[in-house]
Computed example of a mutant assay.
Amino acid sequence: MNDGTTTLPWLVIREDDNGNRYRVGRFATRAEAQRTADSLGDHEHQQLYCVERLGARKPGPEQNGTAR
Rank of each mutant, 00 (worst) to 15 (best):
D17R: 14
D17N: 13
Q34R: 13
A28D: 15
H45Y: 08
G41D: 02
M1K: 14
G55P: 01
V51H: 00
N18P: 00
A33N: 03
G41S: 10
K58Y: 09
E44I: 14
T6W: 04
R35T: 11
E52S: 01
V24D: 02
K58H: 12
Y49H: 02
G60S: 12
T36S: 07
C50A: 07
R68S: 12
K58Q: 13
R35L: 08
H45K: 10
G4C: 11
N64L: 15
P9Q: 07
M1R: 14
R21V: 11
T7C: 08
N2G: 14
A37I: 05
Y22S: 11
V51P: 01
R57Q: 13
Q34F: 04
D16W: 09
H45E: 10
Q63S: 07
T5L: 12
P59R: 00
Y49V: 00
R26K: 12
A37Q: 04
Q46T: 15
W10Y: 13
R30I: 05
V51C: 09
L11G: 00
G65F: 08
C50Q: 00
N20Y: 06
A33I: 03
L8N: 06
G19F: 05
K58N: 13
F27G: 03
T66N: 09
R23W: 00
S39M: 07
K58D: 12
E52V: 15
G41M: 02
V12Y: 00
P59K: 01
C50F: 05
L11W: 04
L54F: 08
D3K: 15
H45G: 12
S39W: 04
P9D: 09
R53G: 04
H43E: 05
S39R: 10
Q63G: 10
T29I: 07
R21E: 13
N18W: 06
G55M: 05
R14N: 08
E52A: 03
T29G: 06
R35H: 08
L40C: 05
A37H: 02
K58V: 15
N20L: 09
T66I: 10
R53T: 06
A67L: 06
R53L: 09
T66G: 09
Y22W: 08
P59T: 02
E44K: 12
I13Q: 04
G25F: 05
I13Y: 00
E15N: 04
K58I: 13
R35V: 10
A28Q: 15
R53N: 03
Q34P: 01
N2F: 06
T6L: 11
H43A: 04
D38Y: 03
L8G: 01
Y22R: 11
